[in-house]
Amino acid sequence: MRLVRVLVLVVGFLCAGLPLAWMALSSVKERADTIAQHPKVLPFATTTPAPESLVFAPTTGSWSELAVVHAGAQASFWEHLGNSVLIGVLSTLCSVVLGTACAYGFSRFRVPGEKDWLFFVLSTRFMPPLAVVVPVLLMYRQLDLAGTHLGLVLLYTVFNLSLSVWLMKGFLDEIPRAFEEAAMVDGYTRAQAFVRVVLPEARTGMAVTAVFCLISAWNEYGFAMTLNSSGAVTVPAYFAGLAGNIEGMPWPQVAAGAIVFVAPIVVFTVLVRKHLLRGMTFGTIKQ
């Protein structure tokens, strides 16, 4: 039984780890090595190796070239990463704050038609978002939101809001009402009680919700590509844009950039991993 468990874990780890390892290897190759016919997997060569050899000579050139503006792009990787960070963090912040506020209302007050409203909120997730990319594009052009940070922040906030409301409602429902009621009788206003008593208890829930929102905004590609191909380009759209580049795809630089791009998500997820499972099973656990 234990052996099976270990085996499953090893296989799972390989599946998850191999792409990352390949990215890491590619980031220290020359471009020629990344597209060589024979795979190059061992970064140990000191002299020029034979073309069929598994060995290649590692270089850190691609890492320093992250600051280079490639042909066909408007800015360096770092600037695009800046766009991603700005848009991802702002939209996550908005989603979590608005979602928490909305969920608190549903959780604590008698809202007429509460179930219908909550279903409506959920139903906004039923449609694949990309189905509305054209109307959104037309609207954004009209409003001059295409190619701006604000445009994507708004869009990602709206997309993540339903998830955020539902997740936060699950978490807030688990915090006894008596927590705030005691505070209110003790001399706090509802707003003060919310800040002093509810928010500290909801911290983990908000962190989990933030991870989900951040991942979805961080990785979003379709809208970023369509709406923001010319300005405030995020990293996924930037990488995709390099593909049509006259110099050919700069694979080592893309690999290096991808590692940088993935790192914060991995760190963030590892930090709140204990609570992620509870977030994903929201609404199903009731004490």
């Binding site: 008596a178 927590f179 009621e181 005691a182 505070a183 009788v185 003790d186 206003t189 500290p200 208890e201």
Partner: peptide, 30 residues
């Protein structure tokens, strides 16, 4: 009057204290 302005104290049946706070913090809270 809001609950806060009534100057009454309520001991709940099913809730007594903030579990993650110390006794001192709980007593100081009001």
């Amino acid at each position: 009057l809001a609950p806060a302005d009534r100057d009454v104290a309520l001991v709940f049946q099913n809730f007594s204290l903030y579990p993650s706070a110390t006794v001192r913090e709980n007593l100081a809270f009001p």
